[in-house]
C-alpha cells in the first residue's frame, strides 16, 4: 500500500513537470520566433550584432557606429514584430472564444462578420481622414453592430443553428463588404483609394511604434478579461440551458465575451487590415495540441496565433523582392493547412 502511494505521487510529479515544460513553450517559442524575425530581412543582421544591439539598448551603452542597424532593428523590425504577434494573438484568441460561445467550430472573426464590419468602419475612417483612435473606434462599433446583426439573423434561422450562424455571417459579411466597395468607388482615386486598397489586403509594412501602442491598449483590454473567465467558456460551450442549470449567468458572460472578442478583432483590423484565416485555423491547431479545455486552449491560441502571424509576416517580407500582402499569404497558407487539419481531425466537426 505504502509502495503504491509512493509511485502514485511520483507519477503525478512527473505529470506536473511535463506540464511545466509545456508551459515553458509559451515563452520559448515566441522568443525564438522574435529572435529569428529580427535577423530575417533584406538588410542582414547577424545574431551577434543583434545580441550586442539589444545589450547596448538594455544597458544604455552608447551604440555609436550602428546607426543604420539601429534604425532597421528598432524602428522598422521591432514595431512590425510586436504588431504581428499582437494581431495574430488577437485574431486567434477571439476566434477561439467565438467558437466556444457560438458552440460552432466554424465560427471565426471573419465568419461572424466582425472582420467585415471592422473593415468597413476603418475604411469609413480613412475616407473621413480620421486619426488612428477615430478609425479604431469606428471599426469597433461597426464591428460590434455586425456581430449583433449576425446573432439577430441567425436567431431567425431556427431549424439548424450551426448552418444558421454560418449563413447569417455570410449575409452580414457581404453586406459590409458591399458597403466597403461602395466607399472605395466614391473615394478619392489619387489619395484615399490606394490607401484603402492596400490596407484591405492586409499589411504591416508601414507600421510604427505608435501604431503598436494604439493596438496594444485595446488588445490588452480585451484579452485580459477573456483570460480571467476562460474556464467558463467551457461551460458556455455546453449551450445556454445547461450552462444556466450549472449556475452560469449566461447572458452576462455572453455579452462580455462578444464585446471583448470584438474589441480585440476591431483593434487589430483597424491597424493591419483584413487578415483572414488566422482566427479559424489557429484555434483548431491549438485544440489538437492541448485539447478543448479553454483553460489551456486560450493561452495556447494566443501564443500559436502570435507566432504564426509573425512567421507568415516574415515570409511576406522575404519571399519576393516586393512585399506580399499579408492577407494574401495567410489565405494561401491557411486554406491548405485548414484542409489538412480537417482531414486529420474529422471528429471535431462532427
Amino acid at each position: 500500500m505504502y509502495q503504491e502511494s509512493g509511485t502514485l505521487r511520483d507519477l503525478s510529479c512527473e505529470r506536473a513537470t511535463s506540464r511545466d515544460w509545456k508551459k515553458l513553450n509559451y515563452l520559448v517559442l515566441p522568443l525564438a520566433a522574435m529572435f529569428l524575425s529580427f535577423a530575417l530581412g533584406r538588410y542582414p543582421v547577424s545574431p551577434r550584432q543583434l545580441a550586442e544591439l539589444v545589450a547596448a539598448r538594455l544597458f544604455l551603452i552608447d551604440a555609436g557606429p550602428w546607426d543604420v542597424l539601429h534604425t532597421v532593428v528598432f524602428k522598422v523590425r521591432l514595431p512590425r514584430i510586436l504588431a504581428a504577434m499582437l494581431i495574430g494573438a488577437s485574431l486567434s484568441a477571439s476566434g477561439a472564444c467565438y467558437q466556444g460561445l457560438f458552440r460552432n467550430p466554424l465560427a471565426s472573426p471573419a465568419l461572424l462578420g466582425a472582420a467585415a464590419g471592422a473593415g468597413f468602419g476603418a475604411t469609413l475612417g480613412i475616407c473621413l481622414s480620421l486619426r488612428v483612435v477615430g478609425i479604431q473606434a469606428l471599426a469597433f462599433f461597426i464591428s460590434l453592430g455586425a456581430v449583433g446583426l449576425t446573432c439577430l439573423l441567425s436567431g431567425k434561422i431556427r431549424h439548424d443553428r450551426t448552418l444558421g450562424l454560418v449563413l447569417a455571417g455570410i449575409m452580414t459579411g457581404s453586406l459590409f463588404t458591399a458597403a466597403t466597395s461602395f466607399l472605395k468607388y466614391v473615394a478619392d482615386p489619387y489619395d484615399k483609394l490606394p490607401t484603402i486598397t492596400f490596407w484591405l489586403m492586409g499589411s504591416l509594412s508601414s507600421i510604427t511604434m505608435s501604431d503598436v501602442g494604439f493596438v496594444a491598449v485595446p488588445v490588452f483590454l480585451g484579452l485580459v478579461p477573456l483570460f480571467l473567465i476562460r474556464w467558463r467558456l467551457n461551460v458556455l460551450s455546453l449551450g445556454d440551458e445547461e450552462a444556466t442549470a450549472l449556475g452560469l449567468n449566461v447572458m452576462r458572460y455572453k455579452l462580455l465575451v462578444i464585446v471583448c472578442a470584438t474589441l480585440v478583432t476591431a483593434a487589430s483590423v483597424s491597424v493591419s487590415g483584413m487578415i483572414g484565416w488566422v482566427g479559424l485555423v489557429i484555434p483548431h491547431l491549438a485544440r489538437i495540441l492541448v485539447g478543448p479545455d479553454y483553460k489551456d486552449l486560450y493561452p495556447a491560441s494566443i501564443v500559436a496565433g502570435g507566432v504564426f502571424l509573425l512567421l507568415v509576416d516574415d515570409l511576406a517580407r522575404i519571399l519576393a523582392s516586393v512585399e506580399i500582402p499579408l492577407g494574401v499569404l495567410t489565405a494561401l497558407i491557411g486554406v491548405p493547412f485548414f484542409l489538412f487539419l480537417l482531414l486529420r481531425e474529422r471528429g471535431a466537426l462532427r
Partner: peptide, 12 residues
C-alpha cells in the same frame, strides 16, 4: 460540440 475529457465535463 467539443471533444472534452470526461473529467472536464464532470468538473463543470
Amino acid at each position: 460540440v467539443f471533444p472534452f475529457r470526461v473529467l472536464d465535463v464532470v468538473l463543470m
